[in-house]
């Protein structure tokens, strides 16, 4: 192991990890918003919107992120829509993640049974109040494990961002391998960087999940 190499290029990795985290977070937050909206559309069976959501979910789930990104980054400019790499990363991740989040939210919403809804209704609660006070809190605790799994899945998916020239961790690693042939060091730092990002999150989530499960009964 060439420690001076590692020392020299650590700042590059830190910067790249930061970029991965920022774009990843933005994409994930957006995908949660999209997912929630799509889940509500399906839950309330909103006409027309419901069909659109169904098509979106299938398109998103049955194509690879890298193809989605290539279409956004290389294809769309030809139709006059120019997106920066960063924008592509965020939009691509949100497009992919939205469908996964939607399904997780929906299964949570559906887990709240009819009697709950009817007794809330018969207390005179409005539709939005039932959603806010009765359905969402219960759905959230059911959905959290699946949502957490999605977050980790999406964080890992950010690794393909380098394909649309985002200077993320993969990009830096590939660059260093190509330039200096210090493959071992470059890859070790790559693995370390992903561990630093993903490991704490996955540990926090599994603790959270255990707690939620305990509170559930």
């Amino acid at each position: 192991m060439d420690w001076s190499f590692i020392q020299k290029f650590t700042p590059m990795y830190v910067e790249a990890a930061w970029l991965t985290l920022v774009i990843g977070t933005l994409g994930i937050v957006l995908s949660i918003a999209i997912g929630l909206i799509c889940a509500l559309v399906k839950y309330y069976k909103v006409p027309v919107a419901r069909q659109i959501v169904a098509v979106y979910i299938e398109l998103s789930r049955n194509t690879p992120l890298i193809v989605q990104l290539f279409f956004l980054y290389f294809g769309l400019p030809k139709a006059g829509i120019l997106l920066s790499s960063e924008a592509c990363g965020v939009i691509g991740l949100a497009f992919l993640g939205g469908s996964y989040m939607a399904e997780s939210f929906l299964s949570g919403l559906k887990s709240v049974n009819d009697v709950q809804l009817e007794s809330a209704e018969s207390l005179g609660l409005r539709r939005w109040q039932i959603m806010r006070y009765i359905v969402l809190p219960q759905a959230a605790s059911v959905s959290i494990p699946a949502l957490a799994a999605n977050v980790i899945f999406l964080l890992k998916e950010t690794s393909v961002f380098s394909a649309v020239s985002l200077a993320d961790l993969m990009y830096v690693a590939k660059d260093l391998i190509g330039m200096y042939y210090n493959t071992g060091e470059a890859l070790t730092m790559l693995v370390a960087a992903y561990l630093v990002i993903i490991l704490p999150i996955s540990i926090v989530f599994s603790i959270l999940e255990r707690r939620v499960r305990r509170a559930g009964n």
Binding site: V115, E118, S119, S122, Y133
Partner: peptide
């Protein structure tokens, strides 16, 4: 509905 109270067969408290 606010003026009609209803109690169901199954325990329907919000858990």
């Amino acid at each position: 509905r606010q003026k009609i109270g209803m109690v169901f067969q199954s325990y329907d408290l919000f858990p």
